[in-house]
Design a protein around this nucleic acid. Structure first.
Length: 483
RNA sequence: GUCCCCGUCGUCUAGGGGUCUAGGACACCGGGUUUUCAUCCCGGCAACAGGGGUUCGAAUCCCCUCGGGGAUGCCA
């Protein structure tokens, strides 16, 4: 049996969209499962919209997600080139053969003429089918059009009475009739560049792809591709059409639903393993019901036949929940490194902190972060010299008892307590001196040193804030409330 | 319009004729822990789209209807 091969074939016309990312991930997981080679092919036949920058950013996003391809534009391989724009001569040979055998023909209908026909059909409430205007042009007809300066497209002659059966690995048996395809379709544009539906099947067979795993939106196009394969005498791969990802309003996921590019998820501070994990859980579930599991375990448990047939709504909230879980349990040194850029951007000189202390800070606040960028909301407590009290803290600090606490804290930090012992004794000494306890004690103390009523445990936070800053904050609050 | 796919809690799903008064996760609502927040723990709310069949028995099989999505491009 020939070795299995899958492919991911993005069109470099923008950022890697989350829906395509899921296709890439599904291909990757299933490839690992089957021991298949992973081929990356760039579908850049639409010269207008394709760009190298876009291709680069897609590759970068794929790498970030941990997807490694065995063959691709930058990786080489025996079936290259892997950019369709570099394969035009290959397609031309197939087009010439089709033309020669009368399985395809030149069409001189202009875009405007086609648009008019489409509109007329739509107005009459009929489905548009290309009427075959140019199906049987004589040499004289063709000469006349050429003289008019018309550049022809190439149309594939769709045979009548053909039944195309796709035994989809996910959807099951799907049957199409060639009559319903919409008539002879264009396979080469008038500028000579080929169309997706035409060359996708050529490349899939030339690149020896055994399993085409792609979005369900391609299912209705599959019969066209199969017909091309038949005309060319090429084998047809196995197909697996993944159910689509929808927005909360059940429409195809798009920008207006929120973040849809992988790059944005990375910038917001999502961990790649969290994104990959979540994407796998869209349309699939483990036997045990676990949602969070390592990649290797997903590979071990996933089964193509168990992938959902129905479309799934993308749940941003659940993704955040999953990401928060990963942030809490990931390696601390790594999370610390990943947090640095966010803090740096927020204006903190992260290089100036001792690393062990910095890691303890990150460890103490990571539990409050759903995305890494949240670190800028929770870490400053330890990075700033003083903390301006927020509204709630202000209200607490204005109370009579709080003034006693502030005064006592200031006195203790300036006289009785040293840098070595302050953390262990500070709160107890304040308690002893003021006679306050419980909420009456802890609320003001927290407000005094953190400027807030919410935050990490004081026992751990105070030593990390450190003697100098505690003293500075006590002095600051003293001036503000007790002076 | 036509063709194709799909319909289980708000969302992701488990289920594949009896073990289903339908299970799990997120969200939400209570309670507990944390003298705070987050975490964590406990509890609760909440679904088989509708109608016909088949069957002793249907969420599960069949048909119809309805609903949703996709395709119908000189985009991919």
């Amino acid at each position: 049996m020939e070795s299995m091969r899958v492919r991911f074939a993005p069109s470099p016309t923008g950022f890697l969209h989350i829906g395509n990312a899921r296709t890439a991930v599904c291909n990757y997981v299933l490839a690992k499962k089957m021991g298949a080679a992973y081929v990356l092919r760039i579908e850049d036949t639409d010269m207008e919209r394709s760009s190298r920058e876009s291709e680069q950013s897609i590759l970068e996003d794929l790498r970030w997600m941990g997807i490694n391809w065995d063959e691709g534009p930058d990786a080489g391989g025996g079936c290259g080139p892997y950019r369709q724009s570099e394969r035009f001569d290959i397609y031309k040979r197939y087009t010439d053969a089709l033309l020669e055998q009368g399985k395809a023909y030149h069409c001189y209908c202009s875009q405007e003429e086609l648009d008019d026909m489409r509109k007329a059909a739509s107005d009459a409430g009929r489905p548009f089918t290309y009427p075959g205007t140019c199906r049987n042009l004589s040499a004289a007809d063709r000469k006349k059009f050429e003289d008019q300066g018309r550049k022809p497209t190439v149309r594939f002659r769709v045979p009548d009475g053909q039944t195309i059966t796709v035994n989809d690995l996910i959807k099951g048996r799907v049957v199409f009739e060639s009559e319903n395809i919409g008539g002879d379709f264009i396979i080469v544009r008038s500028d000579g560049t080929p169309i997706y539906n035409y060359i996708v099947i050529i490349d899939d067979t030339l690149m020896k792809i055994t399993h085409v795993i792609r979005g369900e939106d391609h299912l209705p196009n599959t019969p066209k591709q199969v017909l091309i394969a038949r005309a060319l005498g090429l084998p047809v791969p196995e197909y697996a059409h993944l159910a689509l990802v929808l927005g909360p309003d059940r429409a195809k996921l798009s920008k207006r639903h929120g973040i849809t590019s992988v790059e944005m998820y990375r910038k917001e501070g999502y961990l790649p393993e969290a994104l990959v994990n979540y994407l796998c859980m869209l349309g699939w579930a483990t036997e045990s019901g676990e949602d969070i599991l390592p990649f290797d375990e997903i590979v071990r448990q996933i089964e193509m036949q168990n992938l959902a047939r129905s479309a799934a709504v993308f749940d941003f909230v659940k993704l955040r929940w999953m990401n928060a879980n990963y942030i809490r349990s990931a390696d601390l040194a790594r999370i610390t490194d990943l947090c640095v850029p966010y803090l740096r951007e927020a204006g903190f000189d992260t290089d100036s902190y001792p690393r062990p202390w910095f890691e303890r800070v990150i460890d103490l606040v990571r539990g409050n972060c759903e995305v890494l960028s949240d670190i800028t909301k929770h870490a400053p407590l330890f990075l700033r010299e003083i903390m301006e009290p927020n509204e709630e803290a202000d209200a607490i600090l204005r109370e009579e008892d709080s003034r006693k606490i502030i005064a006592e804290a200031k006195r203790l930090l300036e006289t009785d307590l040293s840098e070595e012992n302050f953390a262990a004794e500070l709160v107890n000494r304040i308690k002893a001196a003021t006679g306050l306890k419980g909420k009456k004690l802890f609320h003001p103390v927290r407000a005094l040193f953190t400027g807030s009523l919410a935050g990490p445990e004081l026992d751990q936070a105070i030593p990390l804030i450190g003697y100098e800053r505690c003293r500075a904050r006590a002095e600051f609050m003293y001036g503000k409330y007790a002076g």
